[in-house]
Design a protein around this nucleic acid. Sequence first.
DNA 1: TATTGTTATACTCTATAACTATA
DNA 2: TATAGTTATAGAGTATAACAATA
Lengths: 139, 139
Amino acid sequence: MRQDEGLGTLLGYQLQQANLIMGDDARRALEPYGLSPAKLTALLLIRANPGCDQSALGRALSINRSSAMKLVNFLVTAALIERRLGRDLRTNALHLLPGVDERLEAMIAALRGSDRHMSARLTEGERATLLALLRRIGP
Amino acid sequence: MRQDEGLGTLLGYQLQQANLIMGDDARRALEPYGLSPAKLTALLLIRANPGCDQSALGRALSINRSSAMKLVNFLVTAALIERRLGRDLRTNALHLLPGVDERLEAMIAALRGSDRHMSARLTEGERATLLALLRRIGP
DNA sequence: TATTGTTATACTCTATAACTATA
DNA sequence: TATAGTTATAGAGTATAACAATA
């Protein structure tokens, strides 16, 4: 199949392609832990914000309350976090369960390994340049 | 909500963030045409490979035959393409319907507008650098 | 035996809408 | 009246498994 010419000059298209490639590998790297990259991100957010509630987590992940609910349910069922009583009777407070912090370190190491592997064709300087440019994407 | 430190130094994470931002805007830009970026990509592939079959299209998009089937069904129902008789009696040949080529140009213009808007904070040189670096992502 | 299209089914992620309890 | 959690439901996008027709 021939590629469309012009598609390759769109930043959005190249971004999507690179993201698919890295995402697939990241997913593979986290498979032994039973977590997707998105779920690991949620876990890291909860670790950085112990006691946060589901709605705040959802906002940070750009998903709504209902979707955040499902995500939290999964993490609770997987015995990674727990819901404690929050500042309100309406609100619950999310906390990592004991021992999860250590397991998180292993997951991050796996993710970093994947990240390195998929950017192996870039020098350190190029990698830093890429990171800096990506941070400036936006309206 | 505080961000996890370290997450921002992962290429995969920044890639994902940038991709989400650009993808949202691209989706908005194509809304008037009733197409998602992925569906436009399929259309561009069919234009670049007139007479291709569904399985080849699927392979080019990294989706399987069954998913390609659904995609082609959508494009047929939207009166954008048609299935003609292929080289086999098993195979059908995908072709753009008359007039779609012109409409495609408008869609591409909208997409390019979005692309430029979301990379407005980059110089031309930086944009080219980013494109080149993204192309080198991979194992 | 292998390939193409097709259908049925299911899974993931997301959203909307409505409800309950609390504030 | 507004907010947090919850539930039911739906839609997009993907996959697997099976089947028929054709090669």
